[in-house]
């Protein structure tokens, strides 16, 4: 069974005459161990859809299962725990906490889970070493380049070993070469048989890195493609990249 299954997901915003239907019945599947890209024009509902997948928003209708859990049926406290334990986020603007250094930023999800700050920092340092940022552990985000910040964000998204990784335009704020490095890194460190990665992107230069590409338009999933396997860059052996 697919790791993530949605059926007929709908979502509207506003009320009365200003009511806008953003999702009009999205049927979607994603497999664990795969990187699924969600693509489509601006305003087609991609961001709303990943917000629902990651339990940041609730759907108005339809069914949703994420590794067997149905976020739509969870109470508020359980939703918070679901996000805390099951989901890792990578954002377009990195969204690192500017007052914390790189290691502290990466440690945040563990601290939220209740791990002591000292242990959390140790693990954060190991992740940053793995991502080639061993020399930048104590640097503030403002002292890092965009690519380095996104690598810190990737470490933060993965440190608590979430089963669902949600990335919103992870390469949009980066130049072409840095974007390529980041997506390669994501493939390298994020994929394992227990995790599904959903990546929203407009950047067609990174399409070859997807295992499958889901196209959205006007609040619906229109079709799913599998890129030419010959174009998919070689990937490391899955599950062997945890620090």
């Amino acid at each position: 069974m697919p790791a993530i299954v949605t059926t007929g997901i709908t979502k509207s915003f506003g009320a009365g005459e200003t009511r806008t239907s953003v999702l009009r019945g999205v049927d979607f599947e994603a497999e664990a161990g795969e990187m699924t890209f969600l693509v489509g024009p601006s305003g087609c509902g991609k961001t709303t859809f990943i917000s629902i997948l990651s339990a940041l928003l609730s759907a108005d209708g339809g069914a949703l299962s994420v590794f067997g859990t149905e976020p739509n049926r969870l109470k508020s406290g359980d939703l918070v725990r679901f996000r805390r334990d099951m989901v890792g986020f990578v954002f377009q603007q990195f969204n690192l906490l500017p007052a914390l250094d790189a290691a502290e930023n990466v440690a945040v999800p563990l601290i939220i889970q209740g791990v002591s700050p000292r242990k959390a920092r140790q693990r954060a340092c190991a992740w940053l070493e793995l991502l080639g940022l061993g020399a930048h552990l104590g640097k503030l985000p403002s002292e890092l380049s965009g690519g380095q910040q996104q690598r810190v964000a990737i470490a933060r998204a993965l440190i608590h070993e979430p089963r669902l990784l949600v990335c919103d335009e992870p390469t949009a704020s980066l130049d072409a070469e840095t974007g390529r490095q980041v997506i390669e890194l994501l493939r390298e460190v994020s994929l394992n048989p227990e995790r599904a990665a959903i990546i929203v992107t407009h950047d067609d230069r990174i399409y070859p890195y997807a295992d499958r590409i889901a196209f959205m338009a006007d609040g619906r999933l229109t079709h799913v493609e599998r890129p030419d396997p010959a174009r998919i860059p070689a990937r490391p052996i899955r599950g062997e990249t945890q620090p």
Partner: peptide
């Protein structure tokens, strides 16, 4: 607020 939103998204409860 953005930072608080990030923390909230990452699973920090309202009480915390």
């Amino acid at each position: 607020l953005k930072q608080f939103a990030v923390l909230k998204a990452m699973g920090l409860s309202n009480w915390r």
